[in-house]
Design a protein around this nucleic acid. Structure first.
Lengths: 232, 232
DNA sequence: ATTATATTTTGATTGAAATTGAAAGTTTTT
DNA sequence: AAAAACTTTCAATTTCAATCAAAATATAAT
């Protein structure tokens, strides 16, 4: 990782320029901005690990997660996607008679601890996101139908739809949406107007649950799908 | 576990910062705060029944597990059954080019931490044993062939074969054996001559790995299948 | 080719936000 | 009761994003 001040001294240019260049490089997925400077990416496609994600915007995530959980009704069969935001839903899940299917390795234990009837799909265990993906996962998913499906994504764009860095994971999310009567995408504001590598589906295929969003952005989306903005 | 003072010296930052970072990591469920520092979270995730078993005959289990691991060769595809004895195999797994398929929910994390290529089968997550079972598990299993399969059982009997209390789990173990070229049952002496409810297979369908056994018992089995008695 | 006019890039400045370290007071441990 | 560890609070510092004017560059017109 490099500090911004280092770059200033090294290049002899202003802090502003360094910042601008860094944000540009970040958009091009060449590095990641961190407080005080920038760090190199882990893999080819930028993908925050479970650890990195979990500690970020925790309160917003919990607010979103809490509302999402409130949508669940007695007797529902639920798909819970791997990922940190859906993970936060677990404490808020109703103690009703529900069934949860998940591909999140971190999720299972918490679900069981909460006494919830839980199924996992099979598949390749991806170390970074702790998600089950691949052929096995896809075939497993075909065994279940869901009333509601809760997904995390990396990008939401009015034209390009829902996206995520890993193609394989996109396939899973896609299939989960297909198998569900209703889909909900959980996303904080940072995901809006972003486009990641692999497409999951069109914007109108899911309802979006978010916590706080600019009016301008909201208008862009509202005509295309329904958005629930959670305010506490 | 780490002490806060250690981290202060190690990082050269203030105590306040360390504390803040630790609480953040705790919120993200990555560790547990304890008086004086922080500890790994594994303890809490392990359910009482699992802990109970784990602490019981731990040394024997580790001895058995270590030997079982030594059987694994470069390029092997392995099935690792849920259960405490097979769990102990993980630290001893060779860092070679192997693939592991498991139905043990506790096993996945450890496998990933060790950097092993891991697949899970799907299925119903049984709270008590933290195993994936049921129709989904069975169908998932059919996707894979194994070079070696390592199982835990509850009863080993020369006439009635391998048994376990849960019929569903028996089905899984059965199928895993079918899909493997070679099977290994890991069992301490307490399992011998026991018969549990659900039959997994006949005594000659697997090799038995144990640590210490009475000569009399040994004779009963030796004619029917091969037994490896591990002595350290 | 030269001048005039857009466009882009740059650097400085600003107030807001995040991070830090220290201090004061409380709880827990020994 | 003393010591260590904890939480809470606050002020100082650093970093951040946004804005604006100057500089540099590109484009158009003569």
């Amino acid at each position: 990782m490099v500090k911004i001040q280092e770059l200033v001294e090294l290049t002899g240019t202003s802090e502003s320029t360094i910042r601008r260049d860094l944000t540009q490089l970040e958009q091009g997925k060449f590095l990641k901005r961190v407080h005080g400077g920038a760090a190199k990416l882990q893999g080819k496609l930028q993908e925050p690990s479970m650890i990195e994600k979990s500690s970020k915007n925790l309160q917003q995530k919990q607010r979103i997660a809490k509302f999402a959980s409130s949508l669940i009704e007695e007797g529902d069969s639920i798909y819970l996607d791997a990922g940190s935001t859906t993970f936060e839903m677990i404490p808020f899940l109703p103690n009703k008679d529900i069934v949860v299917v998940t591909n999140g390795i971190m999720h299972v234990n918490s679900l069981l601890e909460k006494g919830i009837l839980t199924y996992m799909i099979g598949g390749y265990a991806k170390p970074k996101t702790k998600a089950l993906i691949g052929r096995g996962a896809l075939e497993s998913l075909e065994q279940y139908y869901f009333d509601k499906c809760f997904l995390g994504v990396n990008g939401i764009h009015p034209e390009f739809g829902y996206t995520t860095p890993d193609q394989e994971e996109a396939l899973i999310k896609q299939k989960a949406m297909k198998m569900a009567r209703e889909s909900f995408v959980l996303a904080d504001r940072s995901k809006f107007s972003e486009v990641s590598f692999a497409k999951i589906g069109n914007i109108n295929e899911s309802m979006i649950i978010t916590d706080d969003i600019e009016d301008e952005t909201l208008n862009n989306f509202e005509s295309k799908t329904s958005i629930k903005v959670v305010t506490s």
